[in-house]
Structure formats: C-alpha cells, structure tokens
C-alpha cells in the first residue's frame, strides 16, 4: 500500500470547506493536530475564490495551509502535463502534480483529469472524494 506523507487540497476541498462540509473541516483539524500542513496549489485557490461566496471560510481554512505558487517551472510542467492528459483543467493537473511531488494524498472532488494526470506522473492517486 502507498503510504503518504501529507495532504493536498484540490478546489473541491476548498469548495466543500466554504460550504461547511464538516468532514473536510474534521480532517483538516486532524492534519494540523498531527503537525501536517496541507498544501493547496495557487490555481485551486484562485478557482475557489472565483466560485465561492464564503471567502471568510476559505481564509480560515487557508490559515492552516501552504499555498503553493505555480512559478515558471511549475507553469511549464502543468501545461505539458495537461496537454498529455488531454485536459484544459489546469487546477486538477496542478493538484495532481503537487500530490505526486510531495507524496501526498488528495482531498478533492472526483475528476477524470485528476486521475489522468496522476497516472501520467506514475503516481497512485489516494483520494478522499468530496
């Protein structure tokens, strides 16, 4: 079984938190209580703030997370991976890439793009699908 060392939140996790999903908050609390600071790709943050009205709840969640900037190299990697995965969903691709790089499990909505990108990276996706 593939042991994981941390958590990556996709936009689905952020949306669920903004909407008050108590299990997402419970696992977030558990992560922090165990010294794990979840990682959130900057693209997921942008998408969540685009679609969710409860920015205050997002801010509360992100207080206990590391927002990972895309950066020059990351942008190139994400674009190339999205092309190979045949998807325009750069948020899902960035989420899969962050999970593979950090050996992390993912909290996100279930998406084919996420799984396709993880497969291309040779990373077994461990997902809590919200």
């Amino acid at each position: 079984m593939a042991v994981r060392e941390g958590l990556v939140y996709g936009v689905g996790a952020l949306r669920a938190a903004a909407r008050g999903d108590r299990m997402v908050w419970a696992v977030h609390r558990a992560a922090l209580a165990n010294g794990i600071v979840p990682v959130v790709p900057a693209a997921a943050v942008a998408e969540a703030f685009r679609t969710e009205g409860r920015g205050d709840r997002l801010e509360d969640l992100l207080d206990g997370a590391v927002i990972e900037p895309l950066g020059d190299e990351g942008a190139r990697r994400a674009g190339e991976l999205a092309a190979r995965a045949d998807t325009a969903d750069l948020v899902a691709v960035a989420t899969a890439e962050a999970a593979a790089r950090g050996n992390c499990a993912v909290v996100a909505s279930r998406q084919n793009a996420l799984r396709a990108a993880a497969d291309l990276l040779g990373h077994e996706l461990i997902l809590y699908a919200v």
Partner: peptide, 9 residues
C-alpha cells in the same frame, strides 16, 4: 489517507 486508502464522502 496517509496509509494509502482512498475514500468517498
């Protein structure tokens, strides 16, 4: 999740 088991809400 850390032990490698996926789940659904």
């Amino acid at each position: 999740l850390l032990s490698g088991v996926s789940g659904m809400a």
